[in-house]
Each structure stands twice: as structure tokens, then as C-alpha cells.
Design a protein around this nucleic acid. Structure first.
Lengths: 199, 199
DNA sequence: AAGCAATGTTAGTGCTTACTAACTTTAGCA
DNA sequence: TGCTAAAGTTAGTAAGCACTAACATTGCTT
């Protein structure tokens, strides 16, 4: 392994440690000393890789920005029935949220520090999902099985149910209050979204 | 006005200023100096009312805890049609969220600092709403117009749509991205919840 | 008018933080 | 073996933080 490879490895360790600590304690609560310790390097090494704490934070946000999560799913979905498609989308969406829970925690708690940056990320992630889902609805409305509701609002309603569930379960209380079972959440929410609640 | 009245007034000003600043900058980001300044008093006065910053924070959380928001609505609701009832609930719920947006911001970002305290508050507020709504569903299922879904999950789905909408709109971006119109949100979300999305 | 509770003013303490300087140690590669 | 990039070690700085001491001032109540 080259020397450059070692530096890149250290850099990665610092980004990982920073992500976890900041998501846990907030930007101000996570000290450079602790981040370095968690990464297993000297504090000075942190500053050799990132000239300030703020730059480290920016790099964390950048490097962990997630790629589109749903777009690649669309071809696959068009061959499914409506209900199965929605179940799949719910599954992937929740999965993505779980994968990125640290980043989401940061977004929710550090929004005030870097509003524009975090906004960009949010729009990359959630915004793209909204659009994809809304256009899927549009197709199914045009001569398809769906009634005439506003697709944008529908996408927000659907994803909002799951996002809120995720927030309560994972961000606010770590599993120890108001537990709902994940599998049942998917089917119940999807059924409500499809059939509504009246007989 | 008595002297005690003046002290109580100062105390209130400090609680108000603390709520706003902490909700904006976080617990660590809001300094006692700034809180006192915002309240229009000397920093020392803050410490004469609250012996430490942490105690000030606790008092803020305590004093702004909201009372049950939906329970009092139930008698009123039983005379309404299902759709009108759900619209009213949506309206009150969203209204309550707007009223308490500062506290909710704190809950979302400072959860990790005081998990048990904030958890209590959350359960007072949201938990009670869930229960109330779930039992309303139960009644309407028993020989009423509602089909047989799990009422707990239904309550979470319904309130989750609105909570998520509120979060995105008010907490994450202050109105400047992905705007949905509030009135339309209520009717679209309620209609989806009632009728679903298929024809 | 006098007393007293509440607040202001000024100056400070000790601690922690982000960040730096100067020098040493390690480990891969020519 | 010796060069070099990368990291370690130690010791520090300046600034900001929560919080305190000592004393002066305000204004309501009687």
C-alpha cells in the first residue's frame, strides 16, 4: 500500500468518527479531541487533514450525501401491481433512512448551522424521491387505476407517513417507546394509502 | 404591582428568550450572555433566577409543556361526519404544531441531551393524541363506517403525514423550499386517508 | 422618607475549546 | 541504507464559556 493510501485511510476514519460523534452530540458537542480519539489518531492529525472543524463538517456532509434512492427502481416497478410497487417503494425508502440514520440525525439537529448546505442534501435525497414517486402516480392516473388526486401531495403523504414513523422510532426514541412493528407498518400504511379507511 | 410580580415577569422573559435562542442555536449554541441580552436583563440576573444553565433549560421544557390538544375535541367531533371530523383534527393538530414550533425544534435537536425529560414531554403531547385518535377509530369501526385496520397504526399514519409535512415546511426549511399550500394539504391528505388513491 | 427586593455594573475565576509550533517517530520504497 | 510522507508527542496560545464576588442603583410599599 502506498503512502497516499494510508493518508486516505486516515481521512476516512476521521470522517466516520466525525459523522458518528456529531450525529450523537451535535456539532458543538463533538470536540475535535474526541473525534480524533474515536478515529484512533492524534488530534493534530485531524487538523492536518482538515484545516478547521468547520471544514471537516462540510466534508462529512459532502462525502455522505446519498445517491438517488428510487430512480433506479422505476423500471423494475412498472412491471408490478400497484400494491406491490408501493410496498417495494416503502421498503426501499425505509431501508435508505435506516442506512443513513446518522446523517439524518445531523440534518435534523444541525439544520440551523448550515441551512443551505443541508437543504441541498435534503433536496438531492428526498426531493428526488418525491418527484419520482409523483411522476409514477401521474402515469397510473392517466387511464390507469388511480383516481384524480394531486400527485405531489400524494407523494408527500405517502413518504411522510414513513418518514415520521422513522423519526419517532429511530431519531427521537431509540426503539424504547411507542414501538410499532416494521413489517406491519409497511402493509398497514400502504393499505391505507391505497384503499383508505372506509369500508 | 408587587415586587414578586416583577421578579416573575423577569423570570418569564428569561424563559421566553431561552426558548427562542435554544430552539434556534441549540443548547450549547445559546450562551447565557445572549439569552440574558435577548431577555433585556443582565447576565447575572439569569443566574439569580436559575442557578445554572441546565436548570434554566429544564424549566423551559417544563413550563412550555403543552396540555392535551385533542382530548377536549372529542365530544365536539362525535357529532360530525367522518370527513369533517378528520379535517378538524388535522386543523387542530397542525395548529398546535405551529403554536409550539420552538419547543418542537428543541425536541428534535436536543433529544440526545435530555432523552428522558424530552421523552416525557413527547409522550404527553403526541402520545395522548395518538391514543385519542386511535380510540375514535375504534368506535367508528365497531358497526360504523370504517373498515378493519389497526387503529394505532392508522393514527400514526394520519398524524405522521401532517407531522412530516410540518417538519419539512417549518423546521427544516422555513417556507422557502418545496412549498405546499396548507389548506390543500389538509383536504388532500384527509381524502387520501379516507378514500385511498385508487378509483 | 425609609426599607427592601430586584436588578445593574464591573471585574473577575477557572475551565474547555479550536488550533498551532517544534520536534520526534514510524514505515514503505528507491 | 537512507529518503520521505504520514503520523505521534508535548506544550502551548487566545478566545469563549458558565458562573461568582462586591458593590451600586432603582423603584415599589408602607
Amino acid at each position: 500500500m502506498k503512502n497516499g493510501g494510508k493518508a486516505a485511510e486516515t481521512r476516512k476514519k476521521l470522517l466516520d468518527a466525525g459523522l458518528k460523534l456529531i450525529s450523537k452530540r451535535g456539532y458543538l458537542g463533538a470536540t475535535t479531541k474526541d473525534i480524533a480519539k474515536k478515529a484512533g489518531v492524534a488530534e493534530l492529525t485531524l487538523f492536518r487533514h482538515f484545516s478547521s472543524k468547520e471544514i471537516l463538517f462540510r466534508e462529512i456532509i459532502n462525502s455522505y450525501t446519498f445517491l438517488p434512492a428510487l430512480k433506479g427502481l422505476m423500471p423494475e416497478i412498472k412491471n408490478l401491481e400497484y400494491r406491490d410497487a408501493m410496498l417495494l417503494i416503502a421498503d426501499r425508502f425505509l431501508g435508505r433512512l435506516y442506512e443513513r440514520r446518522d446523517l439524518i440525525r445531523i440534518m435534523q439537529s444541525q439544520m440551523h448551522l448550515y441551512p443551505s448546505k443541508v437543504k441541498d442534501i435534503y433536496q438531492n435525497f428526498i426531493g428526488e424521491i418525491y418527484q419520482t414517486l409523483a411522476s409514477y402516480f401521474r402515469e397510473l392516473q392517466d387511464g390507469g387505476p388511480l383516481r384524480d388526486f394531486d400527485p405531489e401531495y400524494g407523494a408527500r403523504a405517502f413518504l411522510g407517513m414513513f418518514f415520521s414513523f422513522f423519526t419517532v422510532q429511530e431519531i427521537m426514541f431509540r426503539k424504547d417507546a411507542m414501538p410499532l412493528e416494521e413489517g406491519k407498518v409497511k402493509t398497514e400504511f400502504v393499505d391505507i394509502f391505497i384503499r383508505g379507511t372506509v369500508r
